[in-house]
């Protein structure tokens, strides 16, 4: 299994161990930028968890839809965890690409977040409509 492929993040230290023959330490500014991007996605993941928890625990129940709050909140919490793991994988892959002087791989994070927001908007609309009808 190659350490430079898509699954390089599974190897401990694959992107941060001693530089190999085809690797050089990248410009620190890019390393810092990669780290800040990871931290920004981590905060986004935490925000999803907070939103999910607040929906389940603090919102009033939807009339006629007893599981409405869980339908909205639980996926947000799960996606928060997923986002954190994907952010870590992308940090490793980006760091590896920087060390090899290769172009950065395309990020799937915006797609995940956009799909999450669109999905939650659809579920919210369904829950609200079902609640209004009853």
């Amino acid at each position: 299994m190659s350490r430079s492929g898509r699954w390089a993040w599974l190897w401990p230290g694959a992107a941060t161990g001693p530089a190999g023959d085809d690797e050089t330490e990248p410009d620190p500014r890019f390393t810092f930028a990669n780290e800040r991007t990871f931290l920004a996605w981590s905060r986004t993941a935490l925000a999803l968890v907070v939103a999910g928890l607040a929906i389940v625990q603090l919102l009033p129940p939807f009339p006629g839809v007893p599981i409405g709050r869980h339908l909205l909140g639980v996926p947000l919490i799960v996606l928060g965890a997923v986002l954190a793991v994907v952010a870590y994988a992308e940090w490793v892959n980006n760091q590896s690409a920087l060390r090899r002087g290769k172009p950065l791989p395309r990020s799937v994070m915006p797609w995940i977040l956009a799909a999450t927001i669109a999905g939650m908007a659809a579920i919210s609309a369904i829950v609200l409509l079902a609640s209004a009808v009853r």
Binding site: L46, V49, Q57, V74, A84
Partner: peptide, 24 residues
């Protein structure tokens, strides 16, 4: 950080599913 967020998410999930809610 990644492990912390995953653990926090699991804790939040448990609290969301089993915890006593404060509706309203």
């Amino acid at each position: 950080i990644t492990v912390s967020i995953v653990v926090v998410s699991l804790l939040s999930l448990i609290v969301a599913l089993l915890g006593k809610s404060a509706p309203g």
